[in-house]
Design a binder for these strands. Structure first.
Length: 476
DNA sequence: TGAAATGTTGGGGCG
DNA sequence: ACGCCCCAACATTTC
C-alpha cells in the first residue's frame, strides 16, 4: 500500500489540482493535509480578513473531500515537524504539493523539500497549481525578468495560454479514523467579536462558489467588462480575487472556460480585457519572484530618499476609518471594512490619496490592505501599491494624481456607490454628492470636512517628487 | 488604468 | 455685413 500526503496550502480545490491528481495516480492511500502555522510569513503572516476566508475555505474543502469518501487532516504548528509526524504515522512514501512563490514560502518549501528527501527518504514532488506560467518560465531575450507589463504579456501570449484543466477525482480512498485531526474551528481563524457580518453577506466561500461566480460572470458581465469594470456602482467585475488567492479556482480554469471567446465572438472584447487582468496577476508574481524585497521597499531606488510626511498617524487613521471627507474614498474604505473587498478602481483612488495627497508611505496602505482584504495577496498587493505610488515596475508616472471628486463623478455618476456605503450622504443631490462641502449646510451634518486641500496637496506631492526625480539610478 | 494649464477653434451675441 | 469679443468645446502640453 503506497501512501501519499497531499499538502494543501493555497490550492483549496479538488479540480485542476495537479498535486492531488498525482497522488490519485500513484498512491492507494491519500492523506489530504492542511497545516496551520500562524507564524509563517513573519511580518507578512496572514491578515485577519484572509483568516476569515481561510476558515470557511478549509471547511468547504473538508466537506468536498468527505463527499468523496476522504477528509482533510488539519494539523497545527511547524510545517516540517507536522509533515514528519504524519509521515511517521501513515508510512507515507510520497509528499505532493503545489508550489507557492512568496519569498517566505519559497524558502520554507525549499528547506522542507530538501529535508524530507534527505532525512526522511520520502519522494517529494511539487507542481504548478496557481499560475498560467511560473515566474521563471517567462523571460526576456537576455534571460532577465520583465519590468514592463506589455512585453511580458505579449511574451506570455506568444507561449500560448491554452490550458486543459485536470478533472476532480470522482472518489477518494478513506483516511483512517485513527489519524488525528484538529477541527477547523479550533484554529482561531474566526473573529472573537462578530465583525464579519458583512463578510457573510458578501461572500460564498469555496470551490463550488468560485465556479458559480465564474459562470455567472462569464454569462452576464463579461460582454460589458471593458466599460463596466471601472464602475464601482455596478457589478461589472468578476470578484474572483479571493477565490484565486486561496486557489479555489485556478487561472488555467478561467482561461479554459473563456476559451473560444475570441475578439470576433460575442463577449470576446470583454474576455480579452479580462484575460489581461489575469495577466496582471501573473506579472505581479513574476515581479515578486525577481524582486523579492518589493513588499517592503520601492523598486525604484530613487524613492529611498522620498520626503514622506512625518506625523501622519492622524491622517492615516482617518483614511482607515473612511472619514476623509471625500465620498468616493470613504465609500471604498467602508466597503473594505464591511466586506473585506474593495472595487479595483476605488483601490487606485484611495491609494493615490494616501500616498500622494497625504504623503503617507505606501507601505502603510499596503499593510492596512493586507489585514483587511479577503483577497490580500503579497504579489498583487505589492504591485498595486507600488504602481499607484509611482515607485514600481511599469508604474503610473508619479505625476498621475487622482482627483477623488472627478473620479467619483466619472465612475459613480449617479452616486449609488457612495450612497450605499456612506449613507449619511444619501440626502445630497447628485450635483454635489462627490463634493459635499459645496452642499447647503445642514444636509449632512455628520459628514466630516475634507482632511486635505486637493489643489495644494497635489502641488506638494509634485514638489516632493521633484526632490528625488533626478537622483541617479531609477531602478535596481 | 490623470489632471490642470495652456492653446486652438468656431459659433453666436452684439455694437 | 462685418469685426470683435466671449466662451464652450476640444486638443495639446505639462506636471
Amino acid at each position: 500500500m503506497t501512501a501519499a500526503l497531499v499538502w494543501f496550502r493555497r490550492d483549496l480545490r479538488l479540480a485542476d489540482n495537479p498535486a492531488l491528481a498525482r497522488a490519485v495516480e500513484v498512491a492507494e492511500t491519500i492523506i489530504p493535509v492542511y497545516i496551520h502555522n500562524p507564524a509563517h510569513g513573519g511580518e507578512w503572516s496572514m491578515g485577519r480578513a484572509s483568516q476569515w476566508w481561510l476558515h470557511h475555505s478549509l471547511e468547504s474543502l473538508d466537506g468536498a473531500l468527505r463527499r468523496l469518501g476522504s477528509r482533510l487532516v488539519v494539523r497545527h504548528g511547524d510545517e516540517q515537524q507536522a509533515l514528519r509526524q504524519l509521515i511517521a504515522e501513515t508510512g507515507a512514501a510520497w509528499v505532493f504539493w503545489n508550489r507557492l512563490y512568496d519569498p517566505a514560502d519559497i524558502s520554507r518549501d525549499t528547506r522542507i523539500k530538501q529535508a524530507l528527501r534527505a532525512e526522511d527518504s520520502v519522494g517529494v514532488e511539487t507542481f504548478n497549481g496557481s499560475l498560467i506560467r511560473e515566474p521563471w518560465q517567462v523571460s526576456r531575450d537576455d534571460g532577465g525578468g520583465y519590468r514592463v507589463f506589455t512585453p511580458f504579456w505579449k511574451a506570455m501570449q506568444k507561449q500560448g495560454l491554452k490550458h486543459i484543466p485536470l478533472a476532480a477525482p470522482v472518489a477518494l480512498p478513506p483516511v483512517s479514523g485513527d489519524l488525528r485531526a484538529v477541527p477547523v474551528d479550533t484554529l482561531g481563524l474566526l473573529p472573537r467579536i462578530p465583525w464579519d457580518v458583512g463578510f457573510r453577506q458578501a461572500w460564498a466561500v469555496g470551490e463550488d462558489a468560485a465556479q458559480a461566480r465564474l459562470a455567472a460572470f462569464a454569462e452576464s458581465a463579461l460582454p460589458d467588462y471593458r466599460q463596466a469594470r471601472d464602475r464601482p456602482d455596478v457589478p461589472g467585475t468578476s470578484r474572483l480575487s479571493p477565490h484565486l488567492h486561496f486557489g479555489e479556482i485556478s487561472p488555467g480554469q478561467i482561461v479554459a472556460s473563456l476559451e473560444g471567446m475570441g475578439l470576433d465572438m460575442p463577449g470576446g472584447v470583454g474576455a480579452d480585457a479580462y484575460l489581461r487582468e489575469v495577466g496582471w496577476r501573473e506579472f505581479a508574481y513574476h515581479l515578486l519572484f525577481h524582486f523579492p524585497h518589493t513588499p517592503d521597499e520601492a523598486l525604484d531606488t530613487r524613492f529611498a530618499d522620498f520626503p514622506w510626511g512625518s506625523g501622519y498617524e492622524a491622517s492615516l487613521a482617518v483614511w482607515q476609518q473612511g472619514r476623509t471627507g471625500f465620498p468616493i474614498i470613504d465609500a471604498g474604505m467602508r466597503q473594505l471594512w464591511a466586506t473585506g473587498w474593495m472595487h479595483n478602481r476605488v483601490r487606485m483612488i484611495v491609494a493615490s490619496l494616501l500616498a500622494k495627497n497625504l504623503l503617507v508611505p505606501w507601505q502603510e496602505g499596503a499593510r492596512w490592505f493586507w489585514d483587511t482584504l479577503v483577497d490580500a495577496d503579497l504579489a498583487c498587493n505589492t504591485l498595486g501599491w507600488q504602481w499607484t505610488a509611482g515607485c514600481g515596475a511599469d508604474a503610473a508616472p508619479y505625476f498621475r494624481i487622482f482627483n477623488p471628486v472627478l473620479q467619483g463623478e466619472k465612475f459613480d455618476p449617479h452616486g449609488s456607490y457612495v450612497r450605499r456605503w456612506v449613507p449619511e450622504l444619501a440626502p445630497l443631490p447628485d450635483a454635489c454628492l462627490h463634493k459635499p462641502w459645496e452642499a447647503p449646510r445642514g444636509l449632512c451634518p455628520d459628514y466630516p470636512n475634507p482632511v486635505v486641500d486637493l489643489a495644494s496637496s497635489r502641488k506638494r506631492a509634485l514638489d516632493a517628487f521633484g526632490q528625488i526625480r533626478n537622483s541617479p539610478c531609477s531602478a535596481i
